[in-house]
Design a protein around this nucleic acid. Sequence first.
DNA 1: ATTATCTATAGATCTATAGATAATGC
DNA 2: ATTATCTATAGATCTATAGATAATGC
Lengths: 222, 222
Amino acid sequence: MSSGAGRVGRPRTRAGDGSGRSARQEILDAAAALFGESGYAATSTRAIADRVGIRQASLYYHFAGKDEILLELLEASVRPTLDVVDALRSAAPDPAAALHALVVVDVATLLAGPLGIAALYVAPEVQQPRFEEFREHRRQLLAVYCDLARELLPAGHPVSAEVAGHACLHLVEMVATLPPTPGLAEQVALTCLGALGLHGERAAAAARGGDRARSGLAGSLR
Amino acid sequence: MSSGAGRVGRPRTRAGDGSGRSARQEILDAAAALFGESGYAATSTRAIADRVGIRQASLYYHFAGKDEILLELLEASVRPTLDVVDALRSAAPDPAAALHALVVVDVATLLAGPLGIAALYVAPEVQQPRFEEFREHRRQLLAVYCDLARELLPAGHPVSAEVAGHACLHLVEMVATLPPTPGLAEQVALTCLGALGLHGERAAAAARGGDRARSGLAGSLR
DNA sequence: ATTATCTATAGATCTATAGATAATGC
DNA sequence: ATTATCTATAGATCTATAGATAATGC
């Protein structure tokens, strides 16, 4: 008779919603929604607590400060993609197929998480030192896109691998500001291939190769 | 003996820098720099005033509130491009050339203004009602990119004109987050053409046509 | 008289800490 | 005893307004 409903700790003034999420997760969800609606600095700890249904001060039992909440949200939105990058590159030796698969995975990861977080990536607030850990990870992802661009761009192409890599990263992140559309990930992937100069049958082959690579590691993608 | 140095009004505590800018412009410049560094909500009116060298309350002689400052900065960063769109489209009947010219002009406009402002375009704060005027103008620009995409995408292309148009807009705005590079505008324009499926000689021809269209209206671009 | 600044301040926040309290667990 | 909440509050802001002041213009 030890498990069950009763949670430890003083009960909340307003009862939980029975969703079974941990308090920590409730806070992350509430904060993500509010950061996406109003921005980080404009969202008060009070507003987050209100949405969760706890008192403002109770947040500090779970997080040391507001910036830790955002940092965790940012990290959760890049980590899954980074975790799968290596496997994806070895599953798809063709860089065009690898790019396609990476874009699809990256878009899916962003769409699976709270939308609105990706819209903060380039916000000035996030460029400040306290979010450096996230930016370092985003830079790693950028480096992958730049590497792929370097392999794919034909010699003498008028666009540098840096610009092309940034272009792919931004095209992926654009999905946070787009109305949700069926087949969006696929469209973004083809747009990235086009931006690198791949089109027609070559792009279609890359798409097939990308799909194959992804299904090859379906395990690590769930 | 009426013109000359002495300005009307009580002198500032800290003397001006002799740059000859109007107080209003000094405020806009200071605010743009700070918004770009720290974000809108995180920048206090006090910080803006300090940078200008006036007291916090003196801002309100020139602007009704902080949001008017940002609104004016946002407007100034889209209006020049919108103003030239019609002329550009009639100077370049070929939509590929028009797209090239538009991207180059749009990038140049962003780079000429305070960098960092374009990084705020997709920030949640700017999505709120008080900045609707700006967003309406950005939507007009988006519509132009979508129209061009609709004309350029081959029938049966797997990417919709909406996604492709958004892609161009985002690729242009990406320059705000890129280290300044020579030839950046040209590279972004070619990347946009590639995203729409134009490449090689067709893209090169569009670039030549775009350059011609722009020099044709050099007058309205200065 | 007009202009552009200043000083002072009201009133509304906002973040984070200290310490109390109401549950469960042992 | 431990956990997760609560109440209360200190101290630091932040925005915007009211009204004074120090220039120039006529």
